[in-house]
Design a protein around this nucleic acid. Sequence first.
DNA 1: TTGTACTGTAATTAATAAAATTACAGTAAT
DNA 2: ATTACTGTAATTTTATTAATTACAGTACAA
Lengths: 136, 136
Amino acid sequence: MNSGRFAISVHILTLLTFSEDEWTPSEHLAGSININPVLVRKELANLRARGLVISKEGKAGGSKLAKPAEQIFMSDVYESVRQKELLGKAANSPNPDCEVGQKINEHLDFLNDRAEQTMIASLSSISLRDFCDRFV
Amino acid sequence: MNSGRFAISVHILTLLTFSEDEWTPSEHLAGSININPVLVRKELANLRARGLVISKEGKAGGSKLAKPAEQIFMSDVYESVRQKELLGKAANSPNPDCEVGQKINEHLDFLNDRAEQTMIASLSSISLRDFCDRFV
DNA sequence: TTGTACTGTAATTAATAAAATTACAGTAAT
DNA sequence: ATTACTGTAATTTTATTAATTACAGTACAA
């Protein structure tokens, strides 16, 4: 599904919360997460597109939160990372000669949407601040 | 995450619902789903372990639902397929010299558990019968 | 105005995971 | 005994993900 990208994004945002007001370079973030800085920069690009972080280029550049941690929710992170169906989709298209095969994907999408909506609702009740408060 | 296994299992169960009382061979299921029969048999093994289907070996063998479709819920299917964290986990272990890195996984587990619980609750309100009724 | 420390992104390669295939032993009906 | 299945292990192929390399662009600061 979205493999480890959600974890990476939350990790990034957590680090940025703890160094509020500073421009944190991606190299530093990558060091704590223990992944390649290019991957961090890709996730930062997503988070930026969602308005969750801002970045500054050039020397002494880096990233910081675009708004207070109270106003960022885990559902925002999920949505910045979302790509594939939550419950997964069949790799092959089902046999169109089969009555069930014809329609199954449409009905699976319904399940997916429903499951995802509930999950997003549950994540939307946890702010980045709430999450970071768990560290103390 | 669980890739396409949820979709495959739901597809299997749907086909078995529509051919209730017959022993359906895995070859037939694989044909409609358009995947390899060995994969179907692996999923059947999971569904069997969860008590959702029963199988019969030998000639004229195959599989059928272990109980009425009214008593099988999408949450059961999810649980039979569940393996990895819903939201995914970092591939590498975070830097233990970093205060955030040390504890992040524990806190991510909390998010995962919470999200997964809500999602399971939502899937538990849809029975296999409900799902199959959508085909008519 | 040049060096340095960053970002941003494309392209490639390496590692990992998933799916398909092959193979074959076991079972039950006929 | 033959046929039509299940069950599962082992291997190969394919797809996905992560890491690496490479380099152009930007901003600060000496």
